[in-house]
Each structure stands twice: as C-alpha cells, then as structure tokens.
Design a protein around this nucleic acid. Structure first.
Length: 226
DNA sequence: GCGACAG
DNA sequence: ATCTTGTCGC
C-alpha cells in the first residue's frame, strides 16, 4: 500500500518512480459489465485556504442518471499541487469518499486525466489501479499531447490526442461552442470505448453528469455540512 | 537554457 | 484549485 502512495518528503523522485511502476499495471481493455448498472463521478475541492482537501463522489443509476448516493470526505491536504503528480495530492481523499459509499460503481469518471499523462498514470489511471475499478479520465485542460486533425464543431465529435506516435486519449466535443474535453482511459477501459462512454452520460452540459454533479458537491460552498 | 504545466 | 465583475452569445 505504501508503494502506491509514497509519503511526501519534498522529493518528487519516489513519486515519479511509483508512477512508472504502477503504469505497467494499467489494463486498456474493457473489463466492466456489458450492461452498466451504476457509474460514479469523483472530484476534489479545497477548504481553509487549501489546508483541507474535500473529495466528493456521486453514484448514479447508469440508465436513468438518477442520483443513488452522495458522499463527501475531508482529509488534511498532504502536499502541494505539482503538475504530473496530482494524484498523490487528491487521490487519498477520493478513496476515503469511496470507502464510505454503500454501493460500488461499475465505472468511475474521474476529474483529471487517465493515461494522457507524461508517465501514463494520471489520477484516473492511478485511481483504477488502487481500487481495481474501471475508470475514465475527464479533463478540462490539456496536460500533454497534441491533436493533428481538426475537431468538428458538432456535438460528440472527437479526434485522437497523441504523444509522438502513441495515442494517449481523445479531444471530445461534448458540447457545441465549448472547448473540447480531454478524455482518456484510466483502467479497464479500451481507448476506443472512451468517447462513446463519456457521451453516453453527457446531457446538455460540457461535463458528463457524474463529474458535473461531483464537481458541484466538491466546490459548492453550500455543501459545508455533513 | 526556454517554455509548458491536469486540479 | 481558488478569488471574482462585467460581458458575450444562444
């Protein structure tokens, strides 16, 4: 367990090493129920000027998108935000929120990248390896990679995101007139399955419902309870 | 050495 | 991420 979360000593080397090792365990094949029953959205926010990390998880019925369960978890912030090392800062709180959930999602949508990461272990992939749950990364901004072909303006259009000759994710126009989402496999989800899975849970907003609802809980001050 | 840089 | 007014477009 300590191997998946080295203590923060101020040295980033151990964290980078852990990512390289864990990245080998990522499975890029669909390994979730043919018929999804529930999905969950995760996101993190901060309180007390960043001293407290607040994670939110929302469990939804995969067919109706009805909210089945909601959980909030708070943990002392363990380290600063460092590009490429986000998961070591935010994942602990998310795991705590997951632990308090009564149900277990068939698929998790994580706010952040999956394998669209320098060492192929963004927070969504890290989450999948640690929990064993299928996961997808939904990012609002690019960390690394580039797209060559232009992205159509139509809803649902997508184009490959690549790092050199390797595809690491997709740019997905979840909503017309909006900047595309950066989506990538986390764990137990095939690259080719990502665009459709994200769109399947996207209604009229840029973000898919699972992450949109988790976003609201994690950052909305109206949730300063429980 | 110079930029880029999830949340 | 978080702090925040007015502004643009459907």
């Amino acid at each position: 367990m300590s191997t998946a979360f080295p203590d923060w000593t101020g040295d980033t080397a151990p964290l980078r090493e852990a990512q390289l090792r864990l990245a080998h365990q990522v499975i890029l094949r669909d390994q979730f129920p043919k018929r999804l029953r529930t999905v969950a959205g995760f996101d993190v926010g901060f309180e007390d000027d960043g001293r407290t990390t607040r994670a939110a998880v929302v469990l939804l019925d995969a067919d109706t998108l009805d909210v089945l369960e909601t959980r909030l978890a708070r943990l002392p912030t363990r380290m600063p935000y460092l590009p490429g090392l986000l998961s070591f800062r935010e994942l602990p709180a998310m795991l705590d929120a997951l632990a308090h959930l009564h149900g277990t999602p068939d698929l998790a949508f994580i706010d952040g990248h999956g394998i669209a990461h320098p060492r192929r272990l963004g927070i969504a992939a890290h989450f999948g390896i640690v929990t064993g749950l299928p996961s997808i990364g939904v990012g609002k901004k690019l960390l690394i990679g580039e797209s060559r072909t232009p992205l159509h303006q139509t809803r649902g259009a997508f184009t490959p995101l690549r790092d050199g000759r390797e595809q690491i994710g997709w740019l997905l126009r979840s909503k017309p007139g909006c900047l595309p989402l950066v989506v990538s496999p986390g764990h137990k989800v095939a690259m080719a399955s990502v665009p459709e899975l994200v769109m399947r849970f996207t209604t009229t907003y840029r973000l898919p419902e699972p992450t949109r609802l988790a976003d609201r809980l994690a950052s909305d001050s109206a949730g300063e309870d429980h």
